[in-house]
Amino acid sequence: MSILHTVNKSPFEKNALSECLTHSMDGSAILLLEDGVYAAMQGTNFEADVKNALASKKVYALGPDIKLRGLSNDRVIDGIELVDYAGFVDLTESNDKVQAWL
């Protein structure tokens, strides 16, 4: 029954994150990857939206994509769980569907 939502676009460039947040059920999992990881950082204009989602949903971010972009794990929003590629695979396995917001 559960869906893993993935977002790979910068929230500033595309509305993929916003639409994902408004179209995902409480309790679902959201994975930020590629340019989507910019939304995982503190201090952006989207921080409030992400924090709001964290109240009812699980939010993950892909560590290697954070590192590639020079972003610091210390500045990831509290409550977001960092995963590596193996963790990404686990997430796809533990949810029965994946919706990729492109």
């Binding site: 460039e13 560590g63 590639l68 972009r69 020079g70």
Partner: peptide
């Protein structure tokens, strides 16, 4: 401007990614 400012972010590190760090 916009997301372009991310191009100049320090500490870009491709050691765990499969893309080249071109910074």
């Amino acid at each position: 401007i916009g997301d372009g400012v991310y191009q100049l972010k320090s500490d870009q590190d491709s050691s765990e990614a499969d893309q080249k760090n071109f910074s």
